[in-house]
Write a protein that binds this DNA or RNA. Structure first.
Lengths: 196, 196
DNA sequence: CCCTTGTGTAAGCACCTGCTTACATACCGT
DNA sequence: ACGGTATGTAAGCAGGTGCTTACACAAGGG
């Protein structure tokens, strides 16, 4: 019986495997509850792992959070052309949940903001990468500011929809939202494609 | 010596006075740290009051939060004409801090989101009132959704600026931000005045 | 004057948090 | 086979949280 199968079916001793279990569980719980309200005990329990291992492999809850944030989000940034990034990210946030493989970094951001200053700093990193790409969509000399404003709208929509659950936004059709937002952003980012 | 003066200058026994001291201190700390990270001990300490009184007068930390949220924010809503509400609220958020009398409800919202589901529900109340007014600025039949989107942008900008501190947004001139945002919103809310 | 009532105070309770330690056990090179 | 090491486990520690309780004291009326 190969190692991989054994590790998946029963509790074998596999450091890399349990590390990944912890990362997956942490990613889910951070997205659902935010940094503060996701306790190390809950994360270890969802991973089906003793909580002491969490500290053996990551040292600190904050370090675990850092690894979670570093793991996700970057593929979307690299694989999406700049002029489509806003719409792709917006639709990803509007989809909510999705499969276990989907990137929930932005959701983690939203729910963890306000937790502590170090967390806000970690989030600024991801924000910088997004805003940098969005900034290229404007030829104005304050393109960076315009990119920040677009990103702010993206986060605000996620905030109202996913975290607050404000109606009618929370129940609105993603296509409708996309059309309205992308249309209004045309005044800000001239190189944003208007066709849905 | 009248009671009011005595209460202000020294520690007299004045239930209404200490109640107000607690409300003021709670408003400040909730705005600075959010709901979870503002502890009842810190609130009582800033008010210069024993923490047991906090529970005598409000019963629960959550109830205190409710009173703080109910107290502020509504004047701005009632005294501002609809077509100016967005810009006034945006400028209020961009001002950051301000005098002790300024309304920091939106800041409290931003920093407390993700704290708990009950908090999110309390915030939805304030959001509903703002969005309802903003919805009147569009003659489209999905005006309510457009109002939500405008409010989302408002909150998103506050999030990036006040909580995350993302540059260049955090250091940008409020007038510039207002001009860019209000201009872009013209496509969404037809009755939004474009002149700054 | 004393006694009730409202106000302020100190101490503590029960619980939860991130994190650590001392120990059991499975794996692997020799 | 066996001993050392990597992996998993249970229990607990120190500190912080919201909240409660038992008590001290001022004020006002009889």
């Amino acid at each position: 019986m190969p190692e991989a199968i054994k590790a998946a079916t029963e509790h074998r001793r596999d450091a890399q495997g349990t590390r990944r279990l912890l990362l997956d569980a942490a990613s889910e719980l951070f997205a659902e509850r935010g940094y503060e309200r996701a306790t190390v005990r809950d994360i270890a329990a969802r991973a089906g792992v003793n909580q002491a291992l969490l500290f053996r492999y990551f040292g600190t809850k904050k370090a675990l959070f850092g690894e979670v944030m570093a793991r996700g989000g970057h593929e979307q940034l690299r694989t999406t052309p700049a002029e489509r990034l806003f719409e792709v990210a917006l639709r990803g946030m509007l989809a909510e949940g999705g499969g276990p493989g989907t990137d929930r970094s932005l959701e983690v951001c939203l729910r963890s903001i306000g937790g502590s200053d170090e967390i806000a700093e970690a989030l600024r990193g991801l924000g910088d990468e997004y805003a940098e790409v969005l900034a290229t969509l404007s030829r104005a000399d304050d393109g960076a500011l315009r990119g920040d404003l677009a990103l702010a709208w993206l986060l605000g929509i996620g905030l109202m929809r996913v975290v607050v659950g404000k109606e009618p936004l929370a129940g609105a059709d993603p296509d409708t939202i996309c059309r309205l937002v992308v249309g209004a952003l045309g005044a800000l980012l001239e190189d944003m494609p208007q066709g849905s």
